[in-house]
């Protein structure tokens, strides 16, 4: 089964494969740099379990689980 950003554990790295969804949500996610090929690392989940914080292109970004579920990821987190 294809994994999404939401399925990653804190500390885990992966590469963005595809961003699903549509309209404003998808656009916003991609505008923030979550484009195919980019490396992400899940840093932590909020104390209540949602949202989560990731590191991407050297900065910190938080998104809700429902948005993270749109981001398909693949193996290959180690610096390409």
């Amino acid at each position: 089964m294809a994994r999404t950003l939401k399925d990653l554990m804190p500390g885990e790295r992966a590469k963005v494969a595809k961003v699903e969804g549509r309209g404003a949500v998808r656009r916003r996610i991609m505008d923030m740099g979550l484009v195919p090929g980019v490396e992400v690392e899940v840093e932590r989940y909020a104390p209540l379990g949602d949202p989560l914080e990731i590191k991407i292109k050297g900065y910190h970004l938080s998104l809700r689980l429902e948005e993270a579920a749109y981001v398909m990821v693949e193996e290959g987190g180690d610096n390409a």
């Binding site: 404003a24 949500v25 996610i29 900065y59 998104l63 809700r64």
Partner: peptide, 12 residues
């Protein structure tokens, strides 16, 4: 309508 995304930067 569409719910607004919560895609928020955590600045340094």
């Amino acid at each position: 309508g569409e719910s607004e995304p919560f895609v928020m930067e955590l600045p340094i």
